[in-house]
Design a protein around this nucleic acid. Sequence first.
DNA 1: AAAATAGTGTCTGTGAGACACTATGTT
DNA 2: AACATAGTGTCTCACAGACACTATTTT
Lengths: 216, 216
Amino acid sequence: MTWRDHTGRTLADYDRPSVAVDVALLTVVDDALAVLLHERTGEHETGRWALPGTFLHVDETLAEAALRALREKAGVTGHLPDQLGVLDRVDRDSRGRVLSVAHVDLVPAGSLPATGEGLRLAPVAELSAGGLPYDHDEIVERAVAWARELHRRPDPRGLLGEEFTLLELQRLHEAVAGGELQKDTFRRTMIGALAETGTLSRGGVGKPARLFRRSG
Amino acid sequence: MTWRDHTGRTLADYDRPSVAVDVALLTVVDDALAVLLHERTGEHETGRWALPGTFLHVDETLAEAALRALREKAGVTGHLPDQLGVLDRVDRDSRGRVLSVAHVDLVPAGSLPATGEGLRLAPVAELSAGGLPYDHDEIVERAVAWARELHRRPDPRGLLGEEFTLLELQRLHEAVAGGELQKDTFRRTMIGALAETGTLSRGGVGKPARLFRRSG
DNA sequence: AAAATAGTGTCTGTGAGACACTATGTT
DNA sequence: AACATAGTGTCTCACAGACACTATTTT
């Protein structure tokens, strides 16, 4: 039995907006924070780079749609983005009324497919205003702020793998923060959430560094 | 000219979810944080108290829909809620696939219409789990967390009016925080964002207190 | 020996938290 | 005088930031 309102109409009788999801998938390459873009195909948009996105189907959750967008548009699997918020300007999409639920994740560069072939990792520091279609510039801006807030803890998304030196951890955090950090302060703020493995790094110049893993 | 995809379809040819907005309108009454509820009317829901909400129309923004929900369901005007996030469980609404974009605001109790008549201010501490329909319990929970984070600054929403004593400010912050605060610490953390008016409170017992207003 | 990186001792400043005291009004 | 509320001096603790030093490795 279908629900009807006081005028006998069902939900299907009312005009509805479309709902899209867009995903800002962040990673760190060459000590710089970057976002995954894919090249659009279609009549008036070839050559346009944008965030992976898709329309929400009626039988899936936002998280499922975000996963599907990553898989279909960028060949990426294995990551579960967080929700950032809804972009709702009435004229944000020329195809009609489309809400976009923005998502974000921060993942190891090694977990992404090879770039080229309509796939690109763009350093966020080099994105100019207006460089992305729709309001994707705003999504990236909010995604970067999300990542910076997240990085009060040591490598919360495990971009470095299980074991790492404090210098490696600091380089990662500097890439996300977008600036240099001081090594003694950094060490003392992070050390509380790290555990020594007991082994030392090998193969570099200078004094070998202790290896740590995340803890607490 | 209407946009068409590669199969010649327009956006209207695809099945879409409905989008609702729900608003957790918080206030402080009797030194306690409370949320505005209204009584639903309709066949199977009379007697059910819920957050004010409505369906998003295709030609309005989420903010406009939130304002409309407050006006039509609760007779409240003059407040602009913030967006909290999207609730998207596939089965959250038995009428069909409905996303809810949750909103929140914190307003002076004096700016609300009289309660009674299907309108109620429920202290959030007294709401039991499962007491509200849909996932409105979760919305209220997130709204309270939002208000607590907001209250790192003195009375950011101006619930006290222009001038107030530090004790009045402390009582407000205790209501939002849901617990007692220490007066000397509270004074010193807030005083930097306050300016003295130069006048004193009148009419109470004990030493008259200086009046302050927000600044910086 | 020189260079490079790892790691720490220590000083300073800030700010929260807590205790106890002083100050000034009403009853 | 007793009480109630306002306001502050001061001690402690924790932590961020900065400087400079020591430690251990490679070249």
